[in-house]
Design a protein around this nucleic acid. Sequence first.
DNA 1: CGCGCAACCTGTCTGC
DNA 2: TGCAGACAGGTTGCGC
Length: 276
Amino acid sequence: MPELPEVETIRRQLAPVIEGRAIAAACVRDPKWVQPVRSSAFERGLTGRTIVHAGRRGKYFSFKLDDGAFLIMHLRMTGNLLYLSESAAVPEKYLRGTLTLDGGAALAFVDPRRFGTALVLADADQADGYFAARLGPEPFDTSFSGDLLHAVTRGRKTSIKAVLLDQRTVAGVGNIYADEALYRAGISPRRRASRLTKAQCERLGDGVRAALRAGIDAKGASIDDFRDAYGVRGSFQDQFLVHRREGLPCPSCGLPVTKTVVAGRGTYFCRDCQRD
DNA sequence: CGCGCAACCTGTCTGC
DNA sequence: TGCAGACAGGTTGCGC
């Protein structure tokens, strides 16, 4: 669920209320959350530190600490990162860990499927290396462009959807926004990546940014589990053009939206507006 | 090396 | 109603 717009929604909410705050206590409820490090080492590394910046890279949170370290978190499929005011009760169900801040407010990481992760990296070099090994450019940076898409798709036999889902192509696009971006660009998700023209790559770059922008503006998509830092649902699911709309009319031509499987994921598109 | 797919977990929904 | 099986937004690692 949580893709770039969902993570960015939470980051924007957290920044004003956690930047400059110290971590009074860190508590790991599920050791799996912070593997391969031991829970006690994770807790020790955070306690007493001040959060100086709430950042994001792709779908990762990147919290900079006052000793130069970075706390990295990923929500994976069903994770939620909640901000709890001093008086709010900690949700015990599916709780993986908490960070209690000075003054009594807390961050709670809640995750039914237990895929979510957290780790501490010692300095900016380590954090940069961690992200560089996994992620391509940020979609709103000038380094992401139609030209770049054209370059990375040359010689690729796989589907364009698989290329978009690869975080090394562009950071932060997942299954929802890949479908929405391809629809906006009028490109079939099944199309062999190497067959995209330069003009199509330009349109796809625009489609990726437009879909992500709309998602951020709607404070994310809550098909099922996603909630923002205050436990509120996003509304982007109400604006989906094709995703999760099997059988419903295409907003452009009115023909029913098709569901299929591409790159191993449920995929929605319009056969007429998105030709192979 | 590129690609496809299973695995990691748990909850929910569908069909028999 | 009960139950087996499929499926769910992400990432990683393995085998071909």
